[in-house]
Design a protein around this nucleic acid. Sequence first.
DNA 1: CTTCACTTTGACCATACGGTCAGGAAATGA
DNA 2: TCATTTCCTGACCGTATGGTCAAAGTGAAG
Lengths: 215, 215
Amino acid sequence: MTADAQISRIKPGRRTDIRRENERVILDAAEKVFAEAGFGGATMQLIADMAGLPKANLHYYFATKEDLYRKVVQQIFEIWLDAAMLFDDAPGPVEGIGGYIDAKMDISRTHPHGSKVWASEVMHGAPVIQDYLETTLRDWTEGRIKAIQRWIDEGKMRPVNPRHLLYMLWATTQHYADFGHQIQTLNDGKPLSDRQWQEAKASVKELVLRGIGAI
Amino acid sequence: MTADAQISRIKPGRRTDIRRENERVILDAAEKVFAEAGFGGATMQLIADMAGLPKANLHYYFATKEDLYRKVVQQIFEIWLDAAMLFDDAPGPVEGIGGYIDAKMDISRTHPHGSKVWASEVMHGAPVIQDYLETTLRDWTEGRIKAIQRWIDEGKMRPVNPRHLLYMLWATTQHYADFGHQIQTLNDGKPLSDRQWQEAKASVKELVLRGIGAI
DNA sequence: CTTCACTTTGACCATACGGTCAGGAAATGA
DNA sequence: TCATTTCCTGACCGTATGGTCAAAGTGAAG
């Protein structure tokens, strides 16, 4: 992070880069603090300390706490949408759903904070991203349901309710991020190792793919 | 709720009942507010308004905000533990796991607030219930893993990783409470009907039981 | 060097929050 | 009736928080 800052300041170092870099540092800090303390429990001072900047500087880049929070939520949503592309262009459920599980599990490992912020936002009634749920997410969901239904019609999987299958995919994959602390506690207090993450991915994939009769 | 208050005030109406009743009203209000706003976003004033009592009265029954919060978390944990009894005394996975799914799905419908408070608590690193995770939950989990392993050894289900199976059960069932708002939004803004809840339970049970090769 | 836009920040403010407390009301038992 | 315990609550307090602002710092362009 610090190294990046120095690099970007040396190489094409311009005013724009200062802004871009600081916004990134602040967003990363905010994601972590919002995840660990919730929106209400997070303070601008905590985020500032985590980012290594004075509090007033945060308000120079982000007008309000809500504004900063909104950007954090949008970020994780876009990451998930990108990963969801694996669903398309897949010939069948093994590649489509299996690949989607892989991607979402990887995100749960690399972006646990973002996942928690999203979960918290939805649990509180989605006050700032309700429009996303009603537009982008709804459209995406309907599209995926159609894809699953096609696989069912083609006999590539059993006739399960596509909607509840999607919920299960979301729930199961995000659980490893949102409830990571509980999982770690039940793992003798240690984070899952590489091998254990592989095991988790394999277990989830097998349970789901066998559950829908794709293998 | 009001009726209960009147009844309990008339029937065996004693000092103890006033305390019991008020504590219940406050706990119910607190559960809802903590679920909707998070610990940091919840205020004693909001809880007091929801309970229909002056704020100072809350502090008469519960010393601090943390104290009140702790009681709320303990409550949902006990409800879940009770439901988990269905796991025991079951001859096989169809009854044991199937019954557990039924029970947890019912709780997700009847106690969505408690589930959200628990999720929020764990996501924030379980600051107040870490000891529960390390003792009661860990013991319960180990016991259930043994039970599942026994079913596997008896050939009643496929050899899946019991730990990840449990995580899937928790994730999937609690998803219907924790992400209820998202599910409702994707259901044209309407809460799931009785029929839709039946469909959800059936889908989850079939996916899981088929996934583990129990049906 | 001067200019000018962009960035930084310590000091400050109004508000809202958790919690306290004194004094009164209500219930109970003798 | 009176004493005692329990319950109730408006008013109050110290603190922490989100946000503001004026003044200073910085560096590229002319």
